[in-house]
């Protein structure tokens, strides 16, 4: 990687040319770490963020009020930024993981990974995939997702890969706001009207079965965790359950948890490329323009 981002003179509001989000960052692999494995791990965390971001962005102009439009869009933007960094890290760690594009295509690795992989090649957990449902379900899902991600990122700041550690250190600050925002909404809705309580309760019940997958360790996570690079999700289960229990207690919804994690997921899951049908539908919409113009410059 040249590391240079010498720009053009295009002066739109936010620039129109691509910027390598890791420009100048030393992406050398840590000693003894396999590039393919590191890339696979970055895709897991990056795809989680990308798909969650896309779903949250669907709320823009549809949220209960203007402030919430802005809030969910902001959270989506933070997650999109994390996804860009992680996908760029994956592309740098293993260029072979990047889908091939026509010669001369200006599409950078991070975008090729986002827009030119099929659902089978995505590595996100299923929790982030389903359609949003109502606002109660969305805040329930965000609570579950952000609580888990925050616990992962808070440990990942000590990763032996300095790039992952840096991405995590930024992400912790952001996701702490996301988690607390979702937690306050769950409590507010649960203690609001009978209808808001019914809806947030239904939302929690809808996302609860996905918690089992969050606790599962993929072989790549296990190997990289032993190498001091990744976090084993099994190590954050107690912390996540503790935080969720606190929220449920404040919401007077103790009967839903904390450890009622639903059925254990057997067989392959999202980390293995086995997804809900909702992901393919989401990707079809997200990727259609980029795929129609693989040599396009945006």
């Amino acid at each position: 990687m040249s590391g240079s981002v010498t720009g053009d003179d295009a002066h739109w509001a936010f620039g129109t040319s691509f910027v390598d989000p890791l420009a100048g960052v030393d992406t050398t692999l840590p000693d003894g770490v396999d590039g393919g494995e590191l890339a696979a791990y970055c895709l897991m965390l990056g795809d989680d963020a990308l798909v969650a971001s896309h779903r949250l962005a669907e709320w823009c102009s549809n949220a209960p009020d203007l402030e919430e439009d802005v809030a969910l869009a902001n959270i989506a933007l933070d997650l999109l930024g994390q996804a860009r960094l992680l996908l760029a890290r994956a592309a740098a760690a293993d260029p072979g993981a990047v889908p091939p594009l026509p010669a001369g295509s200006p599409v950078p690795g991070e975008d090729a990974l986002a827009f030119f992989r099929d659902a089978d090649d995505y590595r996100c957990v299923r929790l982030v995939e389903p359609e949003n449902g109502d606002f109660g379900e969305t805040v329930a899902r965000l609570l579950c997702f952000a609580t888990w991600r925050l616990a992962l990122l808070a440990r990942l700041v000590d990763s032996r890969d300095p790039v992952l550690a840096a991405i995590a250190a930024k992400g912790v600050k952001e996701v702490a706001y996301h988690r607390d925002h979702a937690a306050r909404w769950v409590v507010t809705l649960a203690r609001g009207t009978a209808e808001s309580r019914r809806r947030v309760r239904a939302g929690l019940r809808a996302v609860w079965p996905h918690r089992a997958e969050l606790a599962r360790t993929h072989p790549v996570e296990a190997r990289l965790a032993r190498a001091g690079v990744a976090v084993d999700p099994a190590d954050v289960v107690a912390e996540v359950d503790g935080v969720l229990a606190q929220v449920l207690r404040a919401a007077d919804l103790d009967d839903l948890g904390p450890c009622a994690a639903g059925p254990v997921l057997d067989g392959p899951g999202g980390r293995d490329g086995r997804h809900t049908p909702d992901l393919a539908a989401l990707l079809a919409e997200m990727q259609v323009v980029a795929r129609a113009h693989p040599a396009g410059r945006w």
């Binding site: 720009g7 002066h11 509001a13 620039g15 989000p21 933007l77 933070d78 997650l79 930024g81 960094l85």
Partner: peptide, 22 residues
């Protein structure tokens, strides 16, 4: 020139880059 983003998704970074170069 070394700059650092405020937030991971800060969309202003590209414009900062362009402005510095110009």
């Amino acid at each position: 020139v070394v700059i650092t983003p405020t937030y991971s998704g800060c969309p202003a970074l590209a414009t900062m880059r362009d402005d510095l170069v110009r």
